[in-house]
Simulated assay, not measured.
Amino acid sequence: MKNYQEWYDYMDANIKNKPFLLSLLRTFNRFMTVVMPIVYLTLLATSYFQEGLGEQVLIYVFVPATGFVILSLLRKKINAPRPYEVWDITPLLDRDSPGQSMPSRHVFSATIISMACIHASLSLGIILLVLSVLLGLVRVLGGVHYPKDVVVGYICALVWGVIFFLC
């Protein structure tokens, strides 16, 4: 990406010059890392109490878990550097570990949870899918992922979810 440094410097300056935006960016990132697991656990608990430890609960556990493991192995194999490792930038979000930037596991996790929720409740699932897109945007603006990292993470979760939850 030839003009990434210029683009990020521009975005960084605009966000840093508006403390509310910087706070919103960081708060939303934290919010999603707390809320999505709570939503997922609520989905599991609700399914369990409605059906007992039936097939649906196992599917809600198995599908996201296998997707997460496969994505993690793929990500480790690719081992793409993070933007702050390649460019002279200071990320606006807390730094993640080095490498393994692509695909984004944060976005994959949020999106696969959203897909499970679509299976249970269409309206909730769609809201969560929109929040997952916003999480991807926040991860890019925060300087911890490239746009392709979050797009690939989102698409992988959509495909995995469609195959197992909607087919």
Results as ranks from 00 to 15, higher is better:
residue 137 L to R: 01
residue 152 V to N: 01
residue 60 Y to L: 12
residue 51 E to I: 04
residue 51 E to Y: 10
residue 74 L to A: 05
residue 42 T to I: 08
residue 18 K to E: 14
residue 140 V to G: 06
residue 114 S to D: 06
residue 139 R to K: 08
residue 73 L to S: 03
residue 54 G to V: 02
residue 58 L to I: 15
residue 43 L to H: 02
residue 52 G to M: 10
residue 26 R to K: 15
residue 39 V to E: 01
residue 72 S to H: 05
residue 24 L to D: 09
residue 151 V to S: 02
residue 135 L to H: 03
residue 21 L to A: 08
residue 120 A to W: 14
residue 135 L to R: 00
residue 112 I to N: 06
residue 48 Y to V: 09
residue 137 L to C: 14
residue 82 R to F: 05
residue 83 P to E: 11
residue 48 Y to M: 11
residue 128 L to H: 01
residue 45 A to Q: 02
residue 80 A to P: 02
residue 71 L to F: 03
residue 23 S to P: 00
residue 144 V to G: 01
residue 151 V to K: 08
residue 26 R to V: 14
residue 76 K to R: 12
residue 118 I to F: 08
residue 117 C to W: 15
residue 146 Y to F: 15
residue 47 S to Y: 01
residue 65 A to D: 00
residue 142 G to F: 09
residue 138 V to Y: 04
residue 131 L to V: 02
residue 17 N to Q: 14
residue 21 L to C: 09
residue 85 E to W: 00
residue 47 S to F: 03
residue 106 H to P: 02
residue 38 I to C: 11
residue 81 P to N: 10
residue 71 L to Q: 07
residue 19 P to S: 10
residue 100 Q to S: 08
residue 69 V to D: 06
residue 45 A to K: 07
residue 82 R to S: 06
residue 22 L to R: 15
residue 64 P to Q: 07
residue 114 S to Q: 03
residue 61 V to A: 10
residue 75 R to K: 12
residue 50 Q to V: 13
residue 146 Y to S: 06
residue 89 I to W: 00
residue 148 K to I: 15
residue 113 I to P: 03
residue 115 M to H: 01
residue 153 G to K: 08
residue 152 V to C: 07
residue 99 G to N: 10
residue 92 L to F: 02
residue 132 S to W: 09
residue 37 P to A: 05
residue 154 Y to H: 04
residue 50 Q to A: 11
residue 84 Y to G: 07
residue 24 L to G: 05
residue 119 H to L: 08
residue 136 G to E: 02
residue 44 L to R: 11
residue 89 I to E: 01
residue 128 L to Q: 03
residue 106 H to W: 05
residue 75 R to A: 05
residue 43 L to F: 01
residue 111 T to A: 10
residue 99 G to A: 11
residue 48 Y to S: 07
residue 142 G to T: 09
residue 117 C to K: 06
residue 144 V to R: 11
residue 108 F to G: 00
residue 134 L to Q: 06
residue 42 T to S: 13
residue 137 L to F: 13
residue 111 T to M: 07
